[in-house]
C-alpha cells in the first residue's frame, strides 16, 4: 500500500504524518508512507486544504487530522 501525506509543512501536516505512522504500526500493514510537500504535486490531487491523505492514489481525507483510530479503519 502506498500512503501519501500532502501538506506544505505546517504543524497539522506533521501531526497527520505522525498519526499515520502510528496507525500503520497499530494496524500491522505493509505500507510505504511518504510526505508530499511540492505544491504542484498537491494540486494534482485537487486538494485545496492541507493536510490531506492519499492512499494508493485516491484522496481519502482533506483539511483535517483524523485520529489514529480513524486512520486504522482507512488503511485496514
Amino acid at each position: 500500500m502506498k500512503i501519501e501525506v500532502l501538506g506544505t509543512g505546517c504543524s497539522r501536516c506533521k501531526q497527520l504524518h505522525e498519526n499515520v505512522m502510528q496507525a500503520v504500526i497499530a494496524a500491522d500493514v505493509e505500507a510505504d508512507v511518504s510526505k508530499v510537500e511540492d505544491i504542484t504535486e498537491i494540486m494534482r490531487y485537487g486538494v485545496m486544504s492541507t493536510p490531506a491523505l492519499v492512499i494508493d492514489g485516491v484522496v481519502k481525507t482533506v483539511g483535517k487530522v483524523p485520529s489514529v483510530e480513524e486512520l486504522k479503519k482507512l488503511i485496514a
Binding site: 494534482r44 490531487y45 485537487g46 481525507t61 483535517k64 485520529s67
Partner: peptide, 24 residues
C-alpha cells in the same frame, strides 16, 4: 501552469462531522 486534478471533496455523515470537529 499548474493543472489541478479533479477535486475529491468527500461527503461526511453528521457523526463524522462531530468527530472531526472534536479532532479540530
Amino acid at each position: 501552469k499548474i493543472k489541478m486534478g479533479e477535486t475529491a471533496a468527500t461527503e461526511q455523515t453528521f457523526r463524522e462531522r462531530l468527530s472531526n470537529a472534536r479532532n479540530y
